[in-house]
């Protein structure tokens, strides 16, 4: 049996639509929005609509960014602050994955496990970080571990919930196929459910990272000497508004960069997403 051409040409080799001049409209619109906001911002501070203490000009924020990058602010340079914050967020992501993915697998595959763990996750899920921060400090002290723990707690629910829904989305016949090959429960989880859940887990990681950056400032409220959250709070205490805004922009840039990294990892390691 030889294949007809129609059967063997994979989708990506088929001739695509005639090439038109296609501009990346989404990207252009996004850039235009950001550019427009900066222009309004510059105009507002130039015309003196708001006092510089409330709204420093883009130029002053840029100067603050340069100051912290080269001379340092709040005991450390920008790089040291970024390093401390990045470490906390990604250490938290790592430990949360280590706990959250197995917890999600247990909830999705065991009725008893779901009975025990689901209420716990649902209890933790809506808690605001500032509410449990004092408790973590009383229990675990003011060390680095507490800061990572505070971020981890915020990341737990997205990871667990995305794992559960990923496993539940596994195709019934894929699971049946593995069962006809005599798969044990552990094999079924490792070879079918976990890989099937990976796309969803990746989405959970992206949401968790968002939650992590949100929680970062809270975690650096107490006894931090480094970190972007700490830097922002130090600046806020002295009404150094330009530094506050500079810190916010750096956090936003790091969050965007980690989102791009995750999307790249997704394309690189989960190329089947959306293709079957």
């Amino acid at each position: 049996m030889s294949d007809s051409t129609a059967e063997t040409i994979p989708a990506q080799d088929r001739p695509s639509r005639p090439v038109k001049l296609r501009l990346p409209w989404g990207l252009l619109l996004g850039l235009a929005t950001i550019g427009g906001l900066i222009a309004i911002w510059a105009l507002a501070s130039a015309l003196g609509w708001a006092s510089p203490v409330f709204l420093p000009s883009p130029a002053r924020v840029w100067a603050a960014l340069n100051r912290v990058a080269f001379e340092g602010y709040a005991n450390a340079t920008l790089l040291a602050h970024m390093g401390a914050s990045l470490w906390r967020v990604f250490a938290a992501l790592f430990f949360t994955m280590l706990v959250g993915v197995p917890v999600g697998l247990i909830i999705a595959t065991s009725r008893i496990g779901r009975g025990i763990l689901d209420p716990l996750v649902e209890f933790i899920r809506p808690l605001p970080p500032l509410a449990y921060l004092p408790l973590i400090i009383i229990w675990c002290g003011i060390g680095e571990g507490s800061k990572v723990l505070v971020i981890s707690i915020a990341m737990l629910a997205p990871i667990v919930i995305s794992t559960v829904s990923g496993v539940k989305a596994a195709n019934e016949n894929q699971i049946r196929a593995a069962r006809t090959f005599g798969a044990t429960r552990a094999q079924l989880i490792r070879e079918v459910m976990l890989p099937a859940a990976l796309p969803s887990i990746f989405t959970g990681m992206r949401i968790a990272l968002g939650a992590g950056w949100t929680t970062l400032v809270a975690s650096e409220l107490v006894a931090a000497t480094r970190g972007l959250g700490y830097m922002i709070q130090s600046a806020a205490q002295f009404l150094v508004t330009d530094m506050v805004i500079a810190g916010i922009l750096v956090i936003s840039a790091l969050a965007t960069a980690s989102e791009i990294l995750l999307r790249w990892l997704e394309r690189r390691f989960l190329p089947w997403i959306g293709k079957s």
């Binding site: 195709n171 016949n173 090959f181 070879e191 089947w272």
Partner: peptide, 27 residues
Amino acid sequence: RAVVFQDDALFPWRSVVDNVALPLKLA
């Protein structure tokens, strides 16, 4: 008793040869 499904029920995260080899891996 091996089953061939109406929707192929293959595993998109494994290559063609690894899909076919899966029953043997499980065994």
